[in-house]
Design a binder for these strands. Sequence first.
DNA 1: CGGTATCCTGGCGGATACTG
DNA 2: CAGTATCCGCCAGGATACCG
Lengths: 134, 134
Amino acid sequence: METDIRQDVRNKIQSGNFDCAKELTLSMFSGKHKMYILWELRNGDEIHFNQFTRIIPNVSRKVLTNQLNELIQDSIIEKRDYSEGKVKRASYKLTAIGASLIPILTMMYDWGEKRIDQLRIDPVYQTKNFHPDV
Amino acid sequence: METDIRQDVRNKIQSGNFDCAKELTLSMFSGKHKMYILWELRNGDEIHFNQFTRIIPNVSRKVLTNQLNELIQDSIIEKRDYSEGKVKRASYKLTAIGASLIPILTMMYDWGEKRIDQLRIDPVYQTKNFHPDV
DNA sequence: CGGTATCCTGGCGGATACTG
DNA sequence: CAGTATCCGCCAGGATACCG
């Protein structure tokens, strides 16, 4: 099996199969906390590592590091290092490429908001879809 | 753990936490073959089950059924049953809600195409990002 | 402070065979 | 034809502890 969509898409591209445009885009933010990270960075602000750990509910540092590194590898964000001696300090912000992804997230945000409103108003969804066997 | 983003988002919404708009949207097409399915349906066409099995590379019927059913539960697609006697026949097409998702996929497609072009032109990505440790 | 290193687990998705 | 049923392997992501 391969559930790693990033690796999957990379392999396709490297082997000359470029028929995966949507999948490439999806793979940019399909990690569990990536949308959250990108959303926080959307204004162009720099955010420090420990800020993320405080903002994102229940992320371990390992997982956070991992998500950030993947975003860096994909040229979506970039890291700045402020370390002095033993005290490390790092901040992250969007690259130009990453910034170009924000409109998509905004559309997704809008779509989701509207859909949530529908779901709150129309209780049919609750019974018909949230409990399909009723 | 819970990697099931659909369930995750549902739980949030049902428990009154509506702060997951983007995640809800993402959860609509984060199954492995869902984007492919939606893309094929984007014109409003009806597509039969076995057409999908031929179009999508290497899907088992179980997985395909599963992806289709999740999309139905989420009111993204709807099923029509043509069965006569023992011979089953089913087709699937977008709902209005599903159709409203297509512009997002289109944006993702466009973004991915542009990004792929960049990657083909700029070999730096190959060394710097596809092999981060070089 | 900002990471690594280890170990572990739930569940997605694949393979295969059976059914109406 | 269009599914179920069953079994299984893999890996993202969580917990925890250590490091410079």
